[in-house]
Write a protein that binds this DNA or RNA. Structure first.
Length: 839
RNA sequence: GCCCGGAUGGCGGAAUCGGUAGACGCAGAGGGCUUAAACCCCUCGGUUCGACAAGAGCGUGUGGGUUCGAAUCCCGCUCCGGGCACCA
């Protein structure tokens, strides 16, 4: 072990100056980028704008591997687009409201603000440690009073526009978080997506945003955005458009005739063509007209059924999924099938949901499997109205075919019959075409402290009233006591609660609910365009300058929630004149990176399987860690931590360092003068590298971009160690290009080497030009096939023509062996790459 | 059930327009440097037969098809991942 020290003593200068020391190099450049404002940008910058945004993080402490991955991709793009000559907007902020800080407060008594701000400081410094660069002048936090002011201002604007409202509704109550959740925050198994606790149904008055008013536009505009098909599909599924008709089923009297004195029930169907097959109808147990439409004899049974359905939790209902018994009970009343005029019995069934359509359906067992099962269970008649194909041995037939048993619809195919039936319903005044969506309004109130207060007050006389805009922001008090009950301390804080009614001036109480943190993240990307504006959340001009975000980057876990809400906000803000009128989408391009797993499970704090980046940053450096993230897998894929090759990446950087710092070859060995074939080839290789890396960057293929750099570095090692030695100028040109294309990936080491080589700053250099004339190799491999099998490979001139290629191919001894004296029946020549001789 | 993706060596992956399958990296083997080890440098790695050679056969989940030629295009199937789902 003493040898290394001896070496140091022998040649201290050489050791200190030339050794690759990531810690020293990286710290120095990180300070420089921040101090010099290298990536600050003004709104009047004359370069073409390019807005790169990585989803702003929840500040949970120092960056974890998921952050490193996300912000490495974003940073690469910021640096790359800057080199291409764009004026890049690269902001960062913190999603600083949320439950973890409040839970910590309940545990320790520390105010969520001091707790959160400490975590923000940690996260900021670790983002800088991975070399990510931002315009720090634009930093924002959702808990900042100015940000709160404008979030509340937007709430009031939406309220004014009728897009925010308060309503009593069945809501999702998370037993663990002690707050209501949006539908989007409840997992398919009926648990909370945050805490994993069971979610209950409760009937509560809550604040909502009318996102359903934008359902069709949200659906239509998915076609126009450059997002992963997978994400767009998830959004389309979530919106869940279904087109059909709503029609009225009159109530029948004892003789089976329609009663004029009682309103009919409305049902929604996507298959009005099957109307002749209606043999019963069903109400949801929660339907408001259940009591009215139940016969005296059926009252006890119906009441019992409703009670049972109400008691059944979401979880139990889901666990009953797939069971075929189709629980239901007869009302003892009948309705009229408007197509046939026949009376059919009315039922209650819990498979009919009050929250979708009209809460009532027509039963067509012939074409709907659930209806078939219900009909069988309750002894109801089944009438097919679509002819199933020959040999069909199933039960209900939902497919296409000619209408049967349907009078004036007979013979029509399903699509045509739907149109005819809908026309008929409309002309008879019995119904109308209708589109239904699965999407529900966004429930935004949360019964929590650490969020943006909803700017409303409640007056005994005037009801809920909006706080006047000039009174904003309504801030959270500092002097609060967090009780272990989990109740928001706002409920007991007189200073916060006391208010006067903006309408009548009388005493009023402040709303204690705060907003879902997804409200904060629904407009932060707009605020970045104009972060210091104190007269508006942002000016339309500034927003028009930068929006939509050219490249948005984040985790796939936000595919529905955040991304849907942000799209809704952007459209709504444009409609009410806050955002530019032409802005319909917030994120023109979206990239969703995969998650990191360890031991087969998603790497996360809650699972306790985090790998701390700090140790790697200390040992191998930020560049090695960044490179490992880029190299390990295509960026959109999930990745196992076990597959990361940090050491390999660090080794590669060492190779680049030694090559560029002149250690891999003696400087005196460099030639000058005439160029050899090897010199020309290494030069062409550099141009090919530039071209290849650029195309890889543009298609998010970072793993192959890294491979290209490694491959070229290997070539350079062979080049410098060849007996004739490298040509000085050629080698310099090659190294310059290698460092430039690597700069966005490994910004520190390339900056250091560049400065040592030429004294300039690599991150203000332009992306190198790949000269078209140098992209093509001079000699290429001509593959010769016989009957499609490779039989020989020949080195030929790249400009070879068909005749010459064929001559070379036929001259090959190996090829001749396989031709066995015969001459090819057919020749496919694709010079200079391939000749295929077919016998 | 409906809608999206996937499947390539021991491993992660590459092959961008239908034309050399396995780039690059990890793990492994051999060699060089060194008193020695580490570092570093070079070389070799799909598989079977063959002798460790030359050479040949087989190879991209599976079965067909189109084509001079298929990882790539088409049809069927299997398995894996994701989204939606008693949604009328």
């Amino acid at each position: 072990m003493p040898d290394r020290d001896d070496q140091r003593r022998d040649d201290p200068d050489r050791y200190d100056q030339n050794r690759y020391d990531p810690g020293a190099v990286e710290g120095r450049w990180q300070r420089r980028w921040r101090d010099e404002g290298t990536y600050e940008i003004d709104n009047d910058d004359s370069r073409p704008g390019f807005y790169v945004l990585s989803m702003y993080p929840y500040p949970s402490g120092p960056a974890h591997m998921g952050h490193v991955r996300n912000y490495t991709f974003g940073d690469l793009l910021v640096r790359y687009r800057t080199m291409l000559g764009d004026g890049v907007l690269s902001p960062i902020g913190f999603d600083s409201f949320g439950l973890p800080a409040e839970n910590a407060a309940i545990r320790t008594g520390e105010h969520p603000r001091t707790f959160t701000e400490a975590r923000i400081a940690e996260l900021s410094s670790s983002l800088q440690r991975i070399g990510a660069v931002y315009d720090w002048r634009r930093v924002l936090c959702s808990h900042d009073p100015e940000y709160i002011r404008w979030t509340q201002w937007i709430f009031l604007k939406l309220y004014e526009a009728g897009l925010a409202y308060r309503a009593e509704a069945p809501v999702n109550w998370c037993t663990g978080c002690r707050t209501v959740l949006a539908n989007e925050q409840v997992l398919p198994d009926g648990t909370c997506e945050r805490s994993g606790d069971p979610v209950e149904d409760r009937e509560l008055a809550q604040w909502f945003f009318r996102i359903t008013a934008y359902a069709q536009r949200l659906l239509d505009d998915t076609d126009s955005i450059d997002w992963p098909e997978r994400v767009k599909n998830m959004q389309r599924n979530w919106i869940g458009r279904s087109a059909g008709a709503e029609l009225a089923l009159p109530i029948a009297d004892a003789e089976g005739r329609p009663r004029a004195d009682v309103a009919p029930i409305q049902v929604f169907t996507t298959r009005p063509d099957t109307g002749f097959g209606i043999t019963y109808a069903v109400l949801s147990p929660e339907h408001p007209r259940v009591a009215e439409l139940t016969s005296p004899a059926q009252r006890p049974a119906v009441a019992a059924f409703c009670r049972e359905a109400a008691d059944r939790s979401e979880l139990q209902r889901l666990s009953a999924e797939g069971r075929l018994d189709k629980r239901g009970v007869a009302c003892g009343t009948s309705v009229i099938n408007p197509f046939t005029g026949q009376a059919v019995p009315l039922f209650l069934a819990d498979y009919v949901l009050m929250t979708y359509g009209t809460g009532a359906i027509m039963g067509v067992p012939g074409e709907d499997q659930r209806d078939w099962e219900f009909a069988v269970a309750h002894g109801l008649p089944i009438l097919r109205t679509v002819e199933p194909p020959e040999g069909f041995d199933g039960e209900a037939y939902p497919g296409d075919g000619p209408s049967i048993n349907s009078d004036w619809l007979d013979g029509l195919g399903v699509a045509a019959a739907i149109e005819r039936a809908a026309d008929w319903l409309e002309s008879q005044g019995l119904g109308r075409r209708k589109v239904n969506y699965r999407l529900r309004d966004w429930l935004v109130s949360r019964q929590r402290f650490w969020g943006c207060p909803i700017p409303m007050v409640r007056c005994e006389a005037c009801g809920y009233q909006p706080v006047p805009a000039e009174e904003l922001p309504i801030l959270l008090p500092d002097d609060v006591d967090f009780q272990p009950t989990g109740q928001s301390p706002l409920n007991a804080h007189e200073g916060f609660l006391a208010a006067s009614c903006p309408a009548c001036g009388g005493p009023a109480r402040r709303e204690t609910d705060t907003m879902d943190t997804f409200v904060d993240s629904s407009w932060y990307f707009l605020r970045f365009a104009d972060p210091a504006n104190d007269r508006a959340p942002f000016s339309a001009e500034a927003a028009a300058r930068w929006l939509p975000v050219d490249q948005y980057i984040g985790g796939i876990e936000h595919a529905i929630l955040h991304l849907m809400y942000a799209r809704f906000f952007t459209k709504a803000l444009a409609d009410i004149g806050v955002a530019p009128a032409g802005l319909s989408e917030p994120f023109a391009r979206l990239f969703t990176q995969g998650m990191i797993r360890l031991g087969g499970a998603k790497m996360s704090k809650s699972r306790g399987n985090l790998v701390a980046p700090e140790e790697i940053l200390d040992r191998q450096g930020a560049d090695a860690l960044r490179l490992a993230h880029l190299q390990v897998k295509p960026p959109q894929d999930d990745v196992d931590w076990e597959d990361f090759g940090i050491d390999g990446c660090a080794k590669f950087l060492g190779r680049v360092w030694r090559l560029a710092a002149g250690e891999a070859h003696p400087a005196s060995a460099a030639r000058s003068g005439a160029l050899t074939a090897a010199d020309l080839e290494i030069d062409r290789g550099a141009h090919r590298l530039v071209d290849r890396v650029r195309r890889d960057f543009d298609r998010w293929s970072y793993n192959t971009a890294v491979a290209a750099c490694m491959e070229y570095t290997n070539e350079l090692y062979r080049y410098v160690s060849a007996p004739e030695g490298p040509h000085g100028e050629t080698l310099d040109g090659a190294l310059d290009r290698l460092l430039l294309v690597m700069a966005p990936m490994v910004p520190h080491i390339t900056a250091e080497l560049w400065e040592r080589r030429c004294g300039r700053h690599i991150h203000t250099e332009a992306w190198p030009v790949a000269e078209a004339a140098k992209l093509a190799a001079e000699r290429v491999t001509l593959v010769v096939q016989v009957n499609g099998k490779v039989r020989d490979r020949l080195e030929v001139d790249a400009a070879i023509d068909e005749t010459e290629a064929l001559r070379c191919a036929l001259a090959s001894e190996r090829v001749q062996r396989h031709l066995d004296g015969a001459s090819p029946r057919r020749v496919i020549a694709r010079p200079p790459k391939l000749v295929n001789l077919v016998l």
